[in-house]
Amino acid sequence: MEHGHAADIDRHVRTYVMVFVSLMVLTVVTVGIYYLHLSRPAAIALALIVATVKGSLVACFFMHLISERRLVYWVLLLTVAFFLVLLFVPMFTSLLDQARV
């Protein structure tokens, strides 16, 4: 991004402050979920959903992904694909091993 107009930067800064407040509230929610003493599957699902929302806020606004060029999206899409392979291939092979036993 080239050096911007003051109004544009002010708008950015207001967004950063709003994202910061949201992240703080969601951090309280994350810890609150633990103290609710939910069942483990429910706690895991809820905590991961909140973490994903927080991560998305950081990526979209602090890392400017919301207004990034198409090539960056392609790089990230490829990364997500490889990440999923990395995550599920060991699980799949482990399940196959268990099925053999």
């Binding site: 994350t30 810890v31 979920i33 633990y34 483990r40 706690a43 895991i44 905590a47 991961l48 909140v50 973490a51 927080k54 991560g55 950081v58 990526a59 602090f62």
Partner: peptide
């Protein structure tokens, strides 16, 4: 680095 911690915190400390 912040984003990684956002996931590490619940995964390691709260679950």
């Amino acid at each position: 680095v912040d984003l990684v911690w956002i996931f590490l915190f619940p995964v390691l400390y709260l679950l």
